[in-house]
Design a protein around this nucleic acid. Structure first.
Lengths: 129, 129
DNA sequence: TCTCCTATCATTAGATC
DNA sequence: AGATCTAATGATAGGAG
């Protein structure tokens, strides 16, 4: 009780943007920041009337995603333009997303539905026998 | 000059999370918040050693994406699990991503590279003649 | 569209439960 | 793995250039 004065809350401490080595801390930060990111992605989609998709792949094989779909969207492929601001290759992430959808059954049907028009051919090394 | 006192800066005003109707304001907010989102996605990828992909589709046909790839990643499909926290269907966004990649030439080759193992079959209504 | 400014709101690291 | 609290950093709306 009397220790409360000594147990000062530290508040938001500045952190360098480098990999967090401590497993527990890294996991906690991931959980918190992913939620924050998702919240902001959701807000962006509503405020600015756009679709957003968010995909996460962790090295230990965990995978999660989020997306917010604009209800005002009008799809007109013929007008599509691309504004490329990527720094790394999104294809790598999406490729695994597709592979995952192809490899696993279950919930995957949801993912495959729009992709099923594409005849999947397992890439070398990813054959599941 | 003397007006400076009256021209007080308003600072960060709270906004409801509803579609911004004013075109200029919506575009400005999109630009700012997308940058913010990308920065946070990047930080998350570094801090927590994960891959992140971010895809944006606007109703007027604009499209952009971002992704950060972990350099420590080890791909082991057999261990994949899924933690599904989506609120809308990410497939819709990714489907269009794939369609876009298939429909347009150019920069698209980058995107198609990992997807080219999938034999694309144009869905009805999306044939480009 | 981007940058700068600044007041203010929002997120979050660390600790604790 | 969550929820809560606090103090501090971070993000950003509006205005101006």
């Amino acid at each position: 009780m009397g220790d409360d004065i000594n147990k000062r809350k530290t508040g938001h401490v500045k952190r360098q943007v480098v990999r967090i080595e401590n497993d527990a801390k890294r996991q906690l930060t991931f959980s918190r920041r992913r939620n924050g990111l998702i919240k902001k992605a959701y807000e962006l989609s509503v405020l600015c009337n756009i679709d957003v998709a968010l995909v996460f792949h962790s090295p230990d094989g965990h995978f999660s995603h989020f997306s917010a779909k604009s209800r005002f969207m009008t799809l007109s492929l013929s007008l599509y333009k691309s504004i490329c601001i990527h720094t790394y290759r999104i294809e790598d992430v999406l490729y695994r997303f597709v592979c995952l959808g192809h490899d696993k059954g279950r919930y995957i049907q949801r993912i495959l539905t729009p992709l099923q028009r594409y005849k999947a051919i397992s890439p070398p090394g990813l054959m599941t026998a």
